[in-house]
């Protein structure tokens, strides 16, 4: 009898009420990337503000056109904090999705079931055989696991479907900010670095015979140049990652709604994250 019920519960689980392997993979990969994108964005917004202040300070010292009362330019503290909060929310969304997909509760249940079997095995003069105990343990585990998986799949589907538009919209906003010609934040860094480059060049022309002033101008020129390269490289990689994250979000929804096994962009996301990481590593020393 116990054997029959066990087989029945196993077939219920296999019948697909929980998450499929593809759905779990789509959710896990998307969630990890969301965490990384959120963390990257939060760091970059703070770094962009810092470097803008640094460049404008040097520009003023060179006698350039930067304004002493507007050193942070477009990077007002409030606007940067708003973006960092959004990035943190995206990172937390990724972390929490990972925790939801993780089958910690099933592992806890497996351990509890094993304890339960061991406990019954220790009873002297028991009437149940070892095979009966194994089946009884499996029965408890399978029924419990079935309910857990069903609940997990339901919650994941509801939350991911409900959040899709917001995640996409946040990616669009971040794409605008990381577009070097998008008239948003990264564009502001590029603009500031170009102005510094011009002012450094003018200072070099004006102070040909003053080695100290020349050295300062050369350092400013170098900073402007490295920032322009950084803007181009990280901007392009960040946009590629954010675009891929949007596609992965769509693939996750498709996997959860239609059991689709199509995860091309989701699987490429890891490669794009790696490229972005490499680009950041190259510039972290500059």
């Amino acid at each position: 009898m116990i054997k029959k019920i066990t087989v029945l519960t196993l077939s219920l689980i296999i019948s697909g009420c929980g998450l499929s392997v593809t759905q779990r993979e789509a959710a896990t990969r998307f969630a990890s990337a969301s965490t990384s994108v959120g963390d990257f964005s939060a760091k970059e917004f703070a770094a962009m503000r810092d470097v803008t202040i640094q460049m404008n300070t040097k520009d003023i010292a060179l006698g350039g056109k930067a304004k002493i009362n507007d050193l942070d330019g477009a990077f007002d503290v409030d606007d940067v904090a708003i973006r960092i909060n959004a990035a943190i929310a995206l990172s937390a969304y990724g972390d929490l999705l990972l925790a939801l997909v993780d089958d910690r509760q099933s592992r806890d249940l497996r351990n509890a079931t094993m304890q339960f079997e061991d406990s019954l095995r220790g009873v002297s003069g028991r009437t149940l055989s070892d095979a009966d105990l194994d089946n009884l343990g499996a029965l408890v585990y399978n029924i419990g696991g079935f309910f857990l998986e069903q609940q997990r799949a339901k919650a994941l589907k509801q939350i991911v479907l409900r959040s899709k538009t917001d995640v996409d919209h946040l990616c669009d906003l971040l794409i605008q900010d990381f577009n070097p010609t998008g008239l948003n934040l990264l564009h502001a860094v590029d603009n500031t670095s170009k102005r510094l480059k011009v002012d450094a060049d003018m200072a070099l022309a004006a102070h040909k015979d003053n080695p100290k002033s020349k050295l300062f101008a050369i350092q400013a020129y170098r900073l402007a140049d490295s920032q322009r390269t950084r803007v181009k490289k990280t901007g392009a990689q960040a946009i590629a990652v954010l675009t891929a994250l949007k596609s992965a979000n769509a693939e996750l929804v498709n996997a959860l709604e239609n059991n689709s096994e199509f995860l091309v962009d989701t699987r490429l996301l890891g490669v794009k994250m790696k490229n972005l990481g490499l680009a950041l590593k190259v510039f972290s020393g500059s």
Binding site: Y93, L96, L97, A99, L100, Q105, S106, D108, L109, A112, V140, I143, G144, F147, L148, Q151, R152, A155, L156, Q158, I159, R162
Partner: peptide, 17 residues
């Protein structure tokens, strides 16, 4: 909502145990 869903899963697991 995700935190609440995880709490619910923990409660289900606790009940089964």
């Amino acid at each position: 909502s995700i935190k609440e869903a995880i709490d619910d899963l923990d409660k289900i697991a606790a009940t089964i145990m």
